[in-house]
């Protein structure tokens, strides 16, 4: 009852991308032809909805990009970001070289270990 077409991955992906484009187009046409053409033109509807208050009670209706992910940056990942941003990527050459020199040391250690354990 179910026909299965076995394709190779590339063809399948490209084919399904075509299907994606086609079905999006179909959906768009359905939506556009069914939905009402007229739009509200009164200014009450074109203002953003801020709990019923006028839009000028807030400084800007855009949220600054730096505040977008504070849930991750200052919430869950706070410790991670304190380490990554403030301790690791602090722009001080001496602190960078600690990591870089440690890396050379690690590589040297690995080569010594391989040499003596082969």
């Amino acid at each position: 009852m179910v026909t299965q077409l076995n394709l190779d991955p590339w063809t399948a992906t490209l084919f399904l991308s075509g299907v994606l484009a086609f079905s999006s187009l179909v959906m768009y046409l359905i939506y556009v032809s069914l939905s009402r053409k007229t739009t509200h033109s009164s200014s009450e509807y074109s203002e953003p909805y801020i709990g019923g208050e006028p839009a000028n009670i807030i400084r800007s209706i855009d949220v600054p990009a730096r505040n977008l992910f504070w849930g991750i940056v200052r919430g869950t990942g706070r410790k991670l970001y304190v380490f990554l941003r403030d301790q690791m990527h602090n722009g001080v050459l001496n602190d960078w070289s600690v990591y870089m020199v440690t890396y050379v040391g690690l590589l040297a250690l690995i080569s010594i270990i391989i040499y003596f354990t082969r």
Partner: peptide, 21 residues
């Protein structure tokens, strides 16, 4: 919605199903 419609082609809900490695 197009992406969801397309992903139905990979599931047995569609009469013609597409499968690949």
């Amino acid at each position: 919605i197009g992406a969801l419609t397309t992903s139905l082609f990979l599931l047995p809900i569609s009469p013609v199903r597409i499968a690949s490695d």
